[in-house]
Amino acid sequence: MIRIAVANQKGGVGKTTTTINIGTALAATGWKVLVIDLDPQGNASTGLGIDRALRKRSSYDLLVGNCDIAEAVIPTRVPRLDLVASTVDLSGAEIELVDIERRAHRLDIALSEAPAGRWDVVMIDCPPSLGLLTVNAMSAANSLLVPLQCEFFALEGLSQLLQTIERIRARFNPGLQILGVALTMYDRRNRLSEQVAADVRAALGKLVFETSIPRNVRLSEAPSHGLPALIYDHRCSGSEAYIALARELMARLPLRELAAA
């Protein structure tokens, strides 16, 4: 089972939008996908159309041991795409996990107990922080996808994120690999976007995906309808970009993990 954490400690860079739409694209290819909403704001859950009243079990329950992963899963309207939703309880999870044994590995333990062959790919939507929830995601993942906004402060926190990844490798998960960096909110009319993209590519080289995700109104509208943009409007520029990004991502996936699922 391939496990992908979608992480960046900076907020508003497109983590949730990327998680939802890449997950949808992978499901459209025939893969069985699980999205885990690990952000207390619960935007991935809302964006996939799961009303708060339906979130009987959540990622909070999974982390603190109130249920197993099979009990927490909710089917979505997207064929072959399941969800472990988030609730407001998750905002207190970092405090509650302090006294729990192997607190940095709670998600890894839960995923290891998943029914064999149930899912091919797990995508974990991380909160905008480098706290214990994100550490859990990185400890459970074998790959890391980093959305990076094409704006002035984009590179400011990247070195901190890379340092955190190295610490995770050293202490918890030596097999964690960076799958790639996805440039988001790219505006071709803005010279700053071009300059940031050029700087990121110069610094990180082939680690950066060729596809950039443009600023697009339909990407912003889709969550209010409880749908991924790929379903809400598959012909918009944002959806077309995510389809292209998904193709690139699939070419980089550690398929040995899929074969072992």
Rank of each mutant, 00 (worst) to 15 (best):
G30N: 06
S193T: 10
R215E: 05
A5S: 12
N21E: 01
R103Q: 10
A85D: 00
A5K: 06
R77D: 10
W119H: 15
A229H: 05
N136C: 10
Q9P: 10
L253D: 05
T24R: 04
S86K: 04
E156H: 07
T46L: 09
D37R: 08
R201G: 03
S45T: 13
L63S: 14
A5C: 06
L258P: 11
A5H: 05
L255W: 14
G11Y: 01
L204M: 15
P223V: 06
L162W: 00
A170W: 00
P214N: 03
V98R: 13
I168W: 06
M123C: 02
V217R: 09
D37E: 06
I165T: 11
D187A: 05
N142K: 11
C67W: 03
I36S: 07
A116I: 14
L183C: 12
D120G: 10
E96L: 05
G131N: 12
L179S: 11
I109H: 15
A259R: 14
W119K: 09
P254N: 13
V35D: 01
S45Q: 04
V98W: 01
I124W: 03
R188M: 02
P127C: 04
A7W: 01
G14P: 11
G175F: 00
P214S: 02
P127F: 01
C67E: 02
Q41L: 04
A222F: 01
L132D: 04
L97T: 07
I50S: 04
G92H: 08
G49M: 08
K32S: 14
A244T: 12
I178S: 12
I231H: 12
L130I: 12
